[in-house]
Amino acid sequence: MIKQFGFSEDEYARVRGWLLSALEIAPGPFDEAELLVKLRAEAWHLITTDHAASVVELVRIDGELIGNVLLIGGEKGKALREIIAAQKQFCEFLKHEGFTKLVGTPRKEFHNILKAQGFEEEQKELVKRLQL
Rank of each mutant, 00 (worst) to 15 (best):
M1N: 15
I2V: 15
K3Y: 12
K3P: 07
F5Q: 12
G6M: 12
S8L: 00
S8Y: 03
D10H: 14
D10I: 09
Y12S: 07
W18V: 01
I25T: 06
A26H: 11
G28H: 04
P29F: 08
F30Q: 01
E34Y: 14
L35F: 14
L35M: 15
L36S: 13
R40L: 09
A41G: 14
E42I: 01
W44P: 03
W44A: 04
L46K: 07
T48E: 06
T48R: 09
A52D: 00
S54G: 12
V55N: 13
V55R: 08
V55H: 04
V56K: 01
L58K: 11
L58G: 13
V59S: 13
R60T: 14
D62I: 03
E64M: 02
L65T: 08
I66V: 15
I66C: 10
I66M: 07
G67S: 12
V69S: 12
L71P: 14
I72R: 05
G73I: 02
G73V: 05
G73T: 07
G73R: 04
G74M: 02
R81D: 13
E82T: 12
A86E: 10
C91V: 06
E92T: 12
H96I: 00
G98N: 10
F99Q: 08
T100I: 03
T100P: 00
L102V: 09
G104T: 08
G104Q: 11
G104W: 09
E109W: 09
E109P: 05
E109N: 06
E109V: 14
F110M: 09
H111D: 13
I113A: 10
I113N: 09
A116M: 10
A116K: 15
F119C: 01
E122H: 09
Q123N: 13
Q123P: 00
V127R: 09
K128D: 00
R129L: 00
R129P: 02
L132M: 03
L132R: 04
